[in-house]
Nucleic acid binder design. Structure first.
Length: 425
RNA sequence: GGAGAGGUGGCUGAGUGGACGAAAGCACCCGACUUGAAAUCGGGCGAGCCUAUGGGCUCCAAGGGUUCGAAUCCCUUCCUCUCCGCCA
């Protein structure tokens, strides 16, 4: 959510900024609605003031033992007028809020122009791509060789876009998760948290998944509906919802391993092969809640924390600045990490690191007490994958494959496998 | 799942229809005393919105209702605690 005061005072300027990302804000409609709200609020409050005054007068008259009948007659009309005014005001509030929740965040000035991912800017590359004297296999072929990656078994259980991992691959998946959690807790100063995988609609709205992106989510039918989390960002960021935290507890740094559930509506036919795009995948997520003036520095730092995982695994990757048309709804600025996949001969997203500034904080009412002003002000929130575990496993398999189909283990993972050099010994 | 008790400001906790956005204590901030600190004393101290100064409005878990007037009465939902049952 953008700052309502900003929307009131700088509507045209904001609309101009939003146009960069291809969003057209109907300023006439919004402005009218805002003006109507203001008038109704003034009218309603005047009526409420009147009612409060007269009610007090009645109380006082009664205490003095006077006849209150004339006073009651005077107030008689007020109730109906008040409730009518209130209803109109409420309706306008609801309408205004509906609009506000569907307006995306304003981009940071450093975000490059562009329409889609083709316009993203590569910032840097790291690592040497492996060379093969044969056509490298992709992870599906590698997984099939030892029968430890089973899409058919998963389809029987749940349908397309799921996977069953067995034996060494299940173990590799777990080892990668462990490596990431160890790194971020021990080297980068994050606190590990364990959270619910089902959350209520308010929480989904807090981070921006609702109301606009409901079709991407799995909803669990119940008296009070719950949603499966699409990322740990949702429950972890919402840990500060409706709270005012003291300045000295910031920055809050959380790392959290969860499964993520996505309906992948609208991606039919895309990445149907293998583990790249599943309805359920595991991810280790980094979340920071920070003082506003630090958030862009923190974005750089958080991105480096995510990169460190790839560096430890010695996986070649590049860092990309998303262009205006590709930055997500709630973010002001995003860096993607893309890992090299020999089986696809391309770089694929494995992490996305974003600053949300106060956009999520306003929706969540997450504030800090700013010592400079003494007042509660919205915090800034950030998050980034550190990393997507499934895609990371794909990258290890494809980059570390040997001609005979075996997979060498990255040095950093060998302790998780009793010091073995190869996954399949 | 059954029975009961509750949800009030950062915390503890009073308030059961009228001057209550809310006593008191703790915590915190400012000042006095002090070489400094502690103790003591005085003052301040929830959030949001509207408003030209003054001020006004809303919020006592959430949503409805009764009433001229609701933290207080009624209904629904959510949550917490205690006992019993069940259970990884």
């Amino acid at each position: 959510m953008l700052d309502p005061k900003d929307l009131r005072n700088n509507l045209e300027a904001l609309a101009g900024q939003l146009r960069r990302r291809g969003f057209e804000l109907d300023t006439a409609c919004y402005g009218d609605l805002e003006e109507r709200r203001r008038r109704l609020q003034i009218d309603t409050q005047a009526l409420q003031n009147e009612r409060n005054r007269q009610s007090k007068a009645i109380g006082q008259a009664k205490a003095r033992g006077e006849d209150i009948a004339p006073l009651l007659a005077e107030v008689a009309q007020l109730g109906a007028r008040l409730s009518a005014a209130n209803e109109a005001l409420q309706a306008t509030h609801v309408e205004l809020q509906r609009l506000q929740l569907e307006i995306p965040n304003v981009l940071h000035s450093s975000v490059p122009d562009g329409a889609d991912e083709a316009d993203n800017i590569e910032l840097r590359r790291w690592g040497d791509r492996p060379t093969f004297d044969y056509t490298p296999r992709d992870h599906v072929e590698l997984g099939a060789l030892n029968q430890e990656m089973d899409f058919e078994a998963a389809a029987k259980l749940a349908g397309a876009r799921f996977v069953v991992l067995r034996g060494r691959l299940a173990q590799l998946h777990r080892a990668l998760t462990q490596l990431m959690l160890d790194l971020h807790t021990q080297e980068h100063g994050y606190e590990e948290v364990y959270v619910p995988y089902l959350v209520n609609p308010q929480v989904m709205r807090g981070t921006g998944q609702l109301p606009k992106f409901e079709e991407d989510l799995f909803r669990v039918a119940a008296e009070n509906p719950l949603f499966l989390i699409s990322t740990a960002e949702v429950p972890v960021t919402n840990l500060v919802r409706e709270r005012i935290v003291e300045a000295d507890v910031l920055p809050l740094r959380f790392v959290c391993h969860t499964p993520c559930f996505r309906s992948e509506a609208g991606s039919y036919g895309k990445d149907t092969r293998g583990m790249i795009r599943l309805h359920q995948f595991d991810k280790v997520e980094l979340v920071q809640v920070v003082r506003p003036e630090t958030s862009y520095g923190v974005l750089e730092e958080l991105t480096i924390h995510a990169e460190k995982v790839l560096q430890l695994l010695e996986l070649p990757y590049r860092v990309v600045a998303l262009c205006a048309g590709d930055v997500g709804f709630a973010a002001t600025k995003t860096y993607d990490l893309e890992v090299w996949l020999p089986g696809q001969q391309c770089y694929r997203e494995i992490s996305s690191c974003s600053n949300y500034e106060a956009f999520q904080a306003r929706r969540m009412q997450a504030r800090w007490r700013n010592p400079a002003t003494g007042r509660p002000e919205p915090v800034h929130t950030l998050n980034g994958s550190g990393l997507a575990v499934g895609r990371c496993m794909v990258a290890v398999l494809e980059n570390y494959q040997q001609a005979d189909g075996r997979v060498r283990l990255p040095t950093v993972l060998q302790p998780y496998f009793g010091g073995r050099d190869y996954l399949d010994d």
